[in-house]
Write a protein that binds this DNA or RNA. Structure first.
Lengths: 338, 338
DNA sequence: GTGCGCTTTGCAAGCGCTTACATTTTGTAG
DNA sequence: CTACAAAATGTAAGCGCTTGCAAAGCGCAC
């Protein structure tokens, strides 16, 4: 904030009216006479006056800021959805403040506090599984909050998301129906990440339901990066019997697996099938194209903005929305090798 | 902002001390006795108190917010740098407000205004080539501003970046020295994007300097997406004589080109070499690995934070910094096919 | 001229926080 | 036990803005 920025009083003095009149000029112009309004406007332009945000926030108790805490900005997973969210907000003259938690609940809490203390009128969070203390804080402050990327029917919280468990089961089914019985799973780290945990649970459930012995299925949990995926691949490929398909917890992992497989000389899906989850843009362009679960990110972001704004303006009026996912079949899933 | 948020006074009452003491507990803890500090901390936790941003901003005349406007959040190009920038800021208890301009100067201006009106103490911008009106606004307001991703020696503005032109020339040199004479360039859209323009200029310059007829070099400008890159590839591959190497304006384009090439059955670099620019993480994991220009994103983000904070705290003390790029050689560049 | 309603403007009380200054408490030396 | 400095805490005055309420100005009918 600038030390010598002109204030309401400066403008008032310059225009020869009271500060209240200036304020009204800005916020409800039709309540001041045409002639004064013009005089005031001149003074404003003359001095280059801009309302001080702090003063205004203090007086109105509103900031028109909403906050979002996403797990990571380092990959494309949340980018599209956030972009859509932001666009929808700015249509309503609301500004988005973004924090990232690096998938760490403590850091998430810190970011939430920062956002709140910067006056966020509401909050967008990813997932719903957060520590007691975070939830208590949110409840105590009665901050309008909306959770995306998951959906819990019957909760008193607000969700705009989908059923990760079911989607996980769906893709596992597809893989098994393609003939694979010898599987591995490379999941994200489930602790503190309900989406990863639900996806994994769904996959296991589907696998068990098909009569495959779960104890024979290697399950690795790893960070979402190409590099970690590559390492996970090395572990899996060394096993015997070697899996014929790897189910990845998201597309970043899946792409990492595919690229590693190919750079080691394996053919996908010839030697080994791989599936992903999310359908980020690279999934379509990697060779072979990635069979994955499509998450309606843009739609989710837009809808989240609508519902969150509704909840902010009229508490209680925001609605939970379940979105549907579906599987996109591309070349990375084929029948098992003989 | 929330109606029932606890205030300093609430905490003061709960802890049985004055508001001033609470304030001191938060801002200069060593000026408060150990025992009271503990009591106060309990009260804060108990009530879930968070300082009100407006009040604080008003009293200190600082927001501790800095704004950044990046061209896009939809891909990974700026992610790492921004993340580093943010981490460095949060070390100093400064919050980052991010806007994205979608590579549109008008929208960038709008974002800048939003940021400023929300009290940003300073601004991080990408590139330096912006409309007159934007620059005038910035100058008039005397907002500390720092430009990244480019470097202009001798300017009165602040830069933490590198010479895109030289880097573009470097990679072009390397391609030519690998034996290619029949080239194509897939650049980003240069209008309003000095980085793209400079890179392209550097490439052309190097190509011309090596005695290659520039009029024989196809130059396409396209948006930064895998999809647009794929389309550009289709155009280029239809030409005759067919280029033996494609220089891409950034890695997103390069990866898009490679994937498209492979899905059409071309071998990289056997049939065709491809180079990128930026060295985003996927460049390492795509098959073949991408020969590209490494931009020291993390370092750039950190340094930008340092210099911008310096400029904010002591106007005039921020320094411009030139970063160096270097080429990373990976498999995507080989000798031309016979 | 008076009185009426209406519009336009001013007054002043906060909003929640920081901080210079005043006051109280504590610690220590004599 | 006293005296005095240092440490801890309290008091109160803003920071720039909005807004309920009061006052003033105006047009008009009588």
């Amino acid at each position: 904030m600038n030390g010598n920025a002109p204030t309401l009083d400066d403008v008032a003095r310059a225009a020869g009216v009271s500060a209240a009149t200036i304020s009204r000029c800005i916020n409800s112009p039709d309540r001041v006479a045409e002639s004064t309004r013009r005089r005031v406007q001149d003074a404003i332009d003359q001095l280059g006056y801009t309302p001080n945000f702090g003063g205004r926030a203090l007086a109105t108790r509103r900031t028109n800021i909403v906050g979002a805490v996403i797990p990571s900005m380092a990959n494309a997973i949340f980018a599209e959805g956030i972009q859509a969210f932001q666009e929808e907000l700015s249509r309503e003259k609301v500004t988005l403040l973004i924090g990232s938690s690096n998938y760490d609940p403590d850091y998430e809490f810190e970011q939430i506090q920062t956002l709140i203390s910067h006056g966020a009128d509401g909050l967008l969070l990813v997932g719903s599984n957060r520590p007691e203390r975070t939830q208590r804080f949110l409840d105590a402050r009665r901050i309008p909050t909306l959770n995306v990327w998951c959906y819990q029917p019957g909760s008193d919280q607000l969700f705009v998301g989908f059923d990760n468990c079911r989607a996980g089961a769906d893709i596992a089914h597809l893989v098994i129906e393609s003939g694979h019985r010898n599987l591995a799973i490379v999941s994200g780290i489930c602790e503190g990440n309900d989406r990863a945990a639900d996806r994994l649970a769904g996959m296991k459930q589907a696998i068990g339901a098909k009569g495959i012995d779960l104890s024979q299925v290697t399950v690795l949990q790893t960070k979402y990066s190409f590099e970690h995926a590559a390492r996970a691949f090395d572990t899996i490929i060394a096993q015997s019997p070697r899996p014929t398909a790897i189910l990845a917890g998201n597309d970043v992992l899946a792409v990492g697996l595919i690229e590693r497989a190919r750079s080691l000389g394996f053919s996908v899906p010839g030697d080994l099938s791989v599936t992903g989850f999310d359908d980020i843009s690279v999934a379509q362009f990697v060779e072979p194209g990635l069979t994955t679960v499509r998450v309606p990110q843009v739609q989710m972001g837009q809808r989240a903005a609508e519902e969150l704004l509704a909840e902010i303006r009229h508490p209680g009026s925001g609605k939970s929305v379940e979105m549907l996912t579906h599987i996109i079949r591309r070349g990375s899933l084929g029948p098992p090798s003989a």
